[in-house]
């Protein structure tokens, strides 16, 4: 039986941990709100962009741009979006598991990796049998559009000069604070979507300088924006996952504290009883 003092020490340390997890929960709930605002702020741009992209696709310009034409796939670049920090449950583990599965199942072509987030950087840094092209371990500290579009631009250049034939992305999509979904999406070549509703309202645009140039420019912007969206989604999902994980940790710590409290009281009572017995039996012996 541990002494009451030992139990007390454990009790205090659990309580301190609980304080930390509670604080972290609150911090990530604030960050989650910010991330959500950013997603909302990006929505008008996203809506406009996809409206225009739809217009253009329905105007049978599709064959004009290399970004829309699927070619024979020899090399796939997989963008793995994880987090910079841990303590967010299975957030990064899911991504890593899915990405390894992706590499395993695509044996017919070469798979190269572009990595976002420190967790995945560390993970693939230890495994030398994957070909990592680019790794970024500091973008989630303060996600900004310019930095992210640089990453996208590199992928775009590689795609246009033929070094890669397809770009896919693995990330956690933000559903709600507690729920996120691991998604695998193809970003390049851009998949043409046949949408009846948008084709009806398609407008005849004048293009300047020319249809080809405009289409190229817009599709490139579209791709860069997709990457930005993925980063935002993932960032929000990370904060949500951390909030949930920390909430659970706080709850568990609470349960542990209750249990320890019970054991502590029992031990304390036991000690008092023991001392009393000693006193009584001592007095008895003196008679």
């Amino acid at each position: 039986m541990p002494t009451p003092r030992e139990i007390k020490r454990r009790f205090v340390s659990v309580k301190n941990i609980q304080k930390i997890t509670r604080a972290m929960e609150m911090v990530s709930s604030v960050k989650l709100k910010k991330a959500r605002d950013q997603i909302l702020a990006a929505r008008p741009y996203a809506r406009k962009l996809s409206e225009i992209a739809h217009h253009l696709q329905t105007k049978s310009l599709a064959s004009l741009s290399p970004l829309l034409i699927a070619r024979q796939v020899k090399t796939i670049n997989l963008v793995v979006v994880s987090s910079d920090k841990g303590l967010c449950g299975s957030f990064s583990a899911n991504i890593l598991k899915k990405s390894m599965e992706f590499v395993r199942t695509h044996t017919e072509c070469k798979v190269t990796l572009t990595i976002l987030g420190k967790k995945a950087c560390d993970f693939y840094g230890r495994r030398k049998n994957y070909s990592v092209i680019n790794a970024y371990n500091d973008i989630f500290f303060k996600p900004g559009y310019e930095r992210v579009s640089e990453i996208g631009q590199k992928l775009l250049d590689d795609y246009l000069n033929g070094a890669i034939d397809e770009v896919d992305v693995i990330y956690n999509e933000f559903k709600s604070a507690a729920v996120s979904k691991t998604m695998v999406e193809q970003l390049l070549p851009i998949k043409a979507t046949e949408d009846e509703a948008t084709s009806k309202i398609a407008t005849d645009y004048l293009f300047e300088p020319g249809a080809q140039e405009v289409l190229d420019a817009i599709l490139q912007k579209y791709f860069l924006f997709q990457i930005w969206r993925v980063v935002l989604e993932s960032y929000a999902a990370e904060q949500g996952a951390r909030m949930t994980a920390m909430n659970a940790a706080t709850k568990n710590a609470g349960e542990l504290i209750e249990k320890l409290m019970l054991i502590y009281n029992k031990a304390r009572q036991g000690l008092i009883t023991k001392e009393l017995l000693e006193v009584v039996s001592g007095a008895e012996a003196l008679k």
Binding site: Y205, L206, E208, V214
Partner: peptide, 14 residues
Amino acid sequence: EIGVLPHHTAFLSP
């Protein structure tokens, strides 16, 4: 530079 008044024709440019 391009100036746009109301009822301009549909137009797209970088």
